[in-house]
Amino acid sequence: MINLLRLISGRNASAPVARERLQILLAHERGLRGQPELLELLRAEILAAVSRHVVLDPEKVVVRMERGKQVSTLEVDIEVPNGFERSLAAAS
């Protein structure tokens, strides 16, 4: 009975989807906010450099700056597809 009710009432329940999409999107946008333009520039140039040799999903290239008291770290996280060495070998 409860399941039946849930089925009936839940058919139009798009709010949970809206909520989840927003949470993911805003986590991403908040991360970008306030970053210096330098990071965007670095990201674009790194993406361009790597893309000359490996086929990349641009969304899988993350450049992040962590500011510490003594030193800051620049984190570059690039997800490459499996088997990219083969495409490298073929290219050379």
Binding site: S9, G10, A13, S14, A15, P16, A18, R19, Q23, L26
Partner: peptide, 16 residues
């Protein structure tokens, strides 16, 4: 509509 899950609830908005 919020009660039927068709619209973001107050709690959703405040949490986000």
């Amino acid at each position: 509509r919020a009660a039927r899950g068709e619209m973001l609830s107050i709690e959703d908005i405040l949490e986000i």
